[in-house]
Design a protein around this nucleic acid. Structure first.
Lengths: 204, 204, 204, 204
DNA sequence: AGATAATCGAGACGGTACGTCACGTCTTCTT
DNA sequence: AAGAAGACGTGACGTACCGTCTCGATTATCT
């Protein structure tokens, strides 16, 4: 890819990358209010018009940055054991939400989505759909393996597993340590485990 | 209360009410971005300085408006039965979050809190603490009645019950119908019911 | 006059002066294209909005500055002698147009008026009318004194006297030295002097 | 001339014409400020780069358009009579300045020249020099015929004749009807007519 | 019965960021 | 080589609100 300043046959990849990085950096450094089009343009060494040419608003920039970051993340493992898979997945999810830069962008986007129905729709279309697919994987595999009954309501199950984590992150602000995610998985398994009366031990 | 333009010994209640109502109206009519100090002042027939004298920022105005609205809401009932209490409470909570004007203000405040750590702190101090007390009531009463074991982790229980509801409201945007809240309560009860090994049926 | 930052009972005189001076300075230093609202605001230490509050455009600022500068200028003398009055007046006019800062502003305004009919109208209303009155004074006094016939077309006379000066200044760019203005006056007097056939000398 | 999009051996005459016409049209339709390179390019169906390749600025385009229009205009007639020649010439000049499209372009260029010394120089080099030659013709012929004394200052004479017309057009905005140009000629002839003491009538 | 001082309305002020327009330069592909 | 197309960095435009300030009017209490 040759360096150029743009022409009709394609936009400048250099400008695109610089904008996404600048937006990401500004969000982490100064918070959502500190992300301004002018600030991004100045930090990225890019013209405001170039930003407006390709992104309708600053949240679209953050969305692009977020999608780029998320490309390969949060795909749950497959150990062939529901409990282990879930514990690993939820723990990673909690870490992502509370500790990573991408998680900070996600929180900002979800926050802004409360004020902006269009953003909410795009966020669901561009990210949450895929994420829900990933969240569903360990469960559907468990159904196939017979670990879960075939009539299990997987959507409700996902809400039960990831809902409390998001609630802590977005509402109460409490941390989500490992023992919390493990406890969520434990209670979930209790609900659905075929009750085998004579073997009471089902803890990991 | 007589109309007046200021006096030496106290603020104008009329101005306070007008500001809170204007802020509320603007939020509902034009969304969070449409709530501006200048807009509130103009609609309330109040000087900007009067607003700045009494509120540090527009979110404080919304918070005041919200607290006023919430004064007596969402106190869970006491039927003496954990399942019934929880089903009623969660259903009301879901309605509040998804359907009421106050719920719209709450969603806006939670959204803004993602960008504004100070607001997050105030929101927890001024509202969430009380709300969590109310959420805890049915559970603590159940412990006293012996419906739940005394070592139950009530905080985790609350997260399990209200977390999925908030997750739907704030993140996925899906509705929270009655059968969802009932299912949440059902699964919660299954987890904590003293396991009676020889009677596998545990559906209500 | 107490220093203040503006209130409903009057604008800031300090800001007004600073804006007019900044505009004047920028015109002289960088030319008309160098006069920008942002530049004026920056140099005057004033907010752009303050400029837009009081002036519709940059030419209005220059007009104000010009009117201020012109308040007491170019009033022709009264020596009781038409030739002397006119020679003095035209010479001062030429100096004003070619050498003074105010003249530079005038040339810029006349230039812009070629592109902007509204400005042309305002320029005539706010300045040229008064200036024409001043130009007319020596002539009307001469009529009263009997130096000029009472049916003299004074408007045409003014055009004949000041027209060539403006032509040089605005069109050909040639200088307008004293001998040129004197020659204009001389020829004008020749035209209108009552022809006394037997006394050919009529030069001063 | 075949339609083409560039070739190796010379510029596109089609593009040149389209640019000049577009510039002219925009000036007449939207005024000087409405003439932009981007607007010309769009209307002419020409790339911006093509314009920049051949003209340094938009005023150069207007200048080209103006010179094209002016090729054969305003050459004064030769009736062998100074008064008649001048009356005809000045009347045509006034019409050109006040009524023609080319006159509108000329006024715009003179206006812009007040802000742009480079343009002023080019305008004088490319147009005013030739025009001054044309203005001088009737006078120099009159000198040759003996109608004017050989020591007449022709430059001053031209300024006296065309100066007031330009003054009205550029400064006061008054119309320049026939009787005004005739009066200018009349007064000019009075100045220079050899004084014949015994015949006072010298009106045309 | 005033006098008085905090509060009120109004709105001008110095700022920041917005989103748009046109500039003049560039790169690419076509003719 | 010249042209059409259009992306690029640049800078000014005019607008919307921000939070601060000053002003004159209002009015409940205190002298």
């Amino acid at each position: 890819m040759t360096e150029h300043h743009g022409n009709r046959y394609g936009r400048s990849e250099r400008a695109r990358q610089a904008v996404l990085e600048a937006a990401d950096d500004l969000l982490v450094e100064r918070g959502f209010a500190g992300v301004t089009i002018e600030g991004i343009a100045a930090r990225a060494g890019v013209a405001k018009q170039t930003i407006y040419r390709w992104w309708p608003s600053k949240v679209d920039i953050l969305m692009d940055a977020f999608i780029d970051d998320m490309a390969q993340h949060l795909t749950p493992p497959d150990h062939g054991d529901l409990g282990l898979d879930l514990r690993t997945h939820l723990s990673k999810l909690a870490d992502f939400l509370t500790r990573s830069d991408a998680g900070a962008v996600f929180r900002a986007l979800v926050g802004q989505a409360q004020h902006d129905p269009d953003l909410a729709i795009r966020l669901r279309a561009d990210y949450l759909g895929q994420q829900r697919e990933r969240d569903r994987l360990p469960l559907s595999r468990a159904v196939e393996r017979g670990e879960l009954p075939p009539d299990t309501d997987l959507d409700l199950a996902i809400d039960q597993l990831v809902g409390p984590i998001h609630y802590r992150v977005l509402v109460t602000g409490e941390p989500v340590p490992r023992h919390v995610t493990d406890a969520l998985v434990h209670h979930f398994l209790v609900q659905h485990q075929p009750v085998a009366p004579s073997q009471p031990s089902r803890q990991r």
